[in-house]
Design a protein around this nucleic acid. Sequence first.
DNA 1: ATCCGGACCTGGTCGC
DNA 2: TGCGACCAGGTCCGGA
Length: 245
Amino acid sequence: MPVDLVQVLTGARVTALRRRSKYILADLNRGPSLLLHLGMSGRVRIEDERLGQFHHDASILPQHDHLVLTTDRGTRITLNDARRFGAVDLVRPGEAHPLLAALGPEPLGDDFTPDRLARALAGRALPVKAALLDQRIVAGLGNIYVCEALHRAGIHPRRAAGRIGRDRLARLHAQIRAVLTEAIAAGGSSLRDHRQASGELGYFQHSFQAYGREGKPCLRPGCTGTIRRIVQSGRSTWYCPVCQR
DNA sequence: ATCCGGACCTGGTCGC
DNA sequence: TGCGACCAGGTCCGGA
């Protein structure tokens, strides 16, 4: 956490909220932007004094509350992160921030094209699963949506990233976009902690075809496979050994 | 340069 | 009830 965080934030007004990859950015009416990452277990709690939601004094921090912002309208915004894998930082105007500098294209943006994906993967020997988790290749995919996109595209997670044919790469590109679009529409995937900004649970977890389904039948129409779990660079991968090649 | 394994943390669940 | 093993939605770093 930057040493001048309190000085920068005190009295500042948030003029815009943005997102880049998995980073939340709050632009201020002066100086730097506030950068947040929720890591694996981070959450933002928003409470309103007028609704009686201040259950404790701001000087007494409940466990794993790391940052408390209080507005002059009686709203309290708290960053809670049990595992502390998240990040809080300031981004100076015009700065190439180290956490943002190397990020690849937004998967739902215009510059994420099948061609660009092909160029990023060309010649690479690492498993396509690992490549899609690399935020320099495409920014914003995590374990769930990589598993789901590979299953939908019928591509084996261990396949070398540079050895996927053009047509199948186009299918992968399309399925990355499709799964993200559907998941966003469903409010995300609530496994444990995730909530929508409204506080409602997301419900895309009910649409998983692969993630977390070890030993269950593959849901691709006509496929008789059983979902298997393997570990790749320390992360679980779920896939169907019959229809993912 | 590329790839992989380990490190960073805490908490929940499960089997004994 | 207690205890250890294992698992978790992410990312960075160092060694091979």
